[in-house]
Amino acid sequence: MLLDVLIGNLGYLLRGAVVTVGLAAATVVPSAVIGMVLALAKVFGGMGVRAVVDVYLYVIRGVPLLVLLFFMYYALPYSGIDMPPLVGGVLVMSLYFGAFMAEIFRAAILSLPRAQWDAARSLGMRRRLLFQIVIYPQVFRLAAPPFVNTCILLVKSTSLVSIISLWELTLAGREVAERTFAPLQIFGGVALIYFVLCYGLSRYGLYLEERMRFAH
């Protein structure tokens, strides 16, 4: 099968890939922050706080991301909130993946030996310092491998925003495929680009996992 159509449009697709990477990068930080906040709430919060977090996690894990994106896309104009769909998309994805990060961070926090907390407090460290130099560094190191794997899912999920007309790699592919009538080539090429991005991340995740094995 000749790949000239794909090669001819590769530049356009790659520009879409750049947007995809940007979307993913923009989502990673907020979702990590949300995830950490939720994890801390679940580990240290009172019954009321934990119940609220549990409801949130239940809803997010039970409702498809696409439905949440649709809701944002169609409901936002009616609410009078003047937010560009791009920002809305990143926000929804952050809220969505934040819920998955929460479980990762929660597991990491709980896996820290109690003596770490005891030792830090015994040295006279107060909460802020304790978290800053003892807890967070270790939690992030512990959570890194599953975190990176979640990032792979995140990158793949950015494809969904194409359905609400946000331009990125998948939408670019659809445009080209419709124009050139070469869906096999084009979507194959799009898949390949995603593969390169995600496989790279998965190798990084494996590398982190290896490093972890020597750390404890």
Partner: peptide
Amino acid sequence: IQLMRNTPLLVQIYFIYFGFAMA
């Protein structure tokens, strides 16, 4: 396994739906 894990479902759907039709 690697191919499926590293490519989005949506792209696979498009590939099959539009690609097979074209083929």
